[in-house]
C-alpha cells in the first residue's frame, strides 16, 4: 500500500509508531489532524479590500539568530537537502548588499556592511511571477498574497525566471525525503512544483499572525493590512523611513524594511 519512500518519510517524521500497524487503526482515533473551525471570515472576501504587508526592522534582527527561518521551514514542511542546488527556502538571511544590490553601497558603516537582512517573497502588488505563469498556478489573491496552487503547477519554472528577488524554489526532487521533523499544520509539496512563502495564509485563516512574526524574539517583524491606515504597520511606515527591495522595477513589494 505504501511505498518505501513513504514509509521512510513516516519513520523520519516520527509518526511510524502506529501508522505502520493496521491493528491500531481502529483503537486510536485520528485526533491529530487539526479539527477545522469556521475561518476568520465567513463570506467570500472582497478582492482588493485587504493588502497584507510586512515591515522588517533590520536593526532589531539579531546576528546569528535563525529562529524565524527555522519555525517557518518547520511549520510549512520545507525540505532541507543540505546543498545549494536543490535548496528550497521560504525565508532566509542574506547580507545587506545581496538583499539590496541596487541601494547605496559606497561608504557604508562597518555595522551595515556586516548586517544580514531577511529575504522572503515580497508579495508584490505588480507581481512579474503571476504574469509569467501559464496556468495561473501562481496568482494574486484577493488579499494581496501571491499564492501558489500546487495542484495546478506544471513546473515550467517561468515564475523563477520572472522573480527579481530569487524568492522561488523548485522541488528538484521528492521533498518528503528531506523533511527532518514533519509538521501536521501544512501539507508537503510534490517533486516537480515550485514553492515559496505564502505569507502564512494557512495561519491567517485561523486568525493567527505569520509564524516568523510571532516567533521573532526581538519583535523585529510587523504584519498587517497595508490598506488600513490605522494598522500597526501603517503607523510604523508613517513614522519611519523604509525601503523596499529593487523598487525601480515597479513590482511594488508588500515587504518593507527599516535599515
Amino acid at each position: 500500500m505504501m511505498n518505501e519512500q513513504r514509509r521512510e518519510f513516516i519513520r523520519k517524521a516520527g509518526f511510524g509508531v502506529l501508522a505502520g500497524l493496521g491493528v491500531a487503526a481502529g483503537i486510536v482515533p485520528g485526533y491529530s489532524l487539526e479539527k477545522t473551525v469556521l475561518p476568520a471570515w465567513d463570506e467570500k472576501p472582497v478582492a482588493g479590500k485587504i493588502r497584507w504587508g510586512m515591515l522588517i526592522d533590520t536593526r532589531k534582527c539579531k546576528e546569528g539568530c535563525q529562529q524565524c527561518v527555522a519555525v517557518c521551514h518547520h511549520e510549512h514542511n520545507v525540505p532541507d537537502f543540505g546543498n545549494r542546488k536543490d535548496e528550497v527556502k521560504w525565508i532566509w538571511k542574506s547580507p545587506y548588499e545581496k538583499v539590496f544590490p541596487t541601494a547605496t553601497q559606497q561608504f557604508k558603516s562597518k555595522e551595515l556592511s556586516e548586517r544580514s537582512c531577511l529575504a522572503l517573497c515580497n508579495h508584490c502588488a505588480e507581481s512579474p511571477c503571476t504574469r509569467a505563469c501559464p496556468t495561473e498556478a501562481t496568482f494574486k489573491r484577493w488579499d494581496g498574497i501571491v499564492a501558489m496552487d500546487y495542484h495546478r503547477c506544471i513546473g515550467c519554472r517561468f515564475c523563477m525566471a520572472a522573480c527579481p528577488y530569487g524568492s522561488r524554489s523548485f522541488n528538484w526532487q521528492d521533498p518528503r525525503t528531506a523533511i527532518k521533523e514533519a509538521s501536521t499544520s501544512y501539507p508537503t509539496r510534490e517533486q516537480g512544483v515550485v514553492e515559496k512563502c505564502n505569507f502564512c495564509s494557512d495561519r491567517l485563516v485561523k486568525g493567527l499572525q505569520p509564524a516568523c512574526v510571532e516567533t521573532c524574539p526581538e519583535h523585529a517583524l510587523t504584519f498587517g493590512d497595508l490598506n488600513d491606515p490605522k494598522s500597526d504597520i501603517r503607523m510604523l511606515l508613517e513614522t519611519n523611513t523604509t525601503m523596499q527591495r529593487k523598487p525601480e522595477l515597479g513590482t511594488k513589494p508588500s515587504v518593507f524594511y527599516i535599515i
Binding site: 505563469c133 496556468t135 503547477c153 523548485f170 516537480g192 512544483v193
Partner: peptide, 26 residues
C-alpha cells in the same frame, strides 16, 4: 524540449485548460 524541462509534464494540458493570455508561454 519544453516537455523535457517541465517538472510535471503530466499536467501539460493545464496550459490549454487554463489559458492565460497574460503569460507569454501560452
Amino acid at each position: 524540449f519544453i516537455l523535457a524541462d517541465m517538472g510535471r509534464p503530466d499536467r501539460v494540458l493545464n496550459v490549454l485548460l487554463f489559458p492565460s493570455p497574460h503569460s507569454m508561454v501560452f
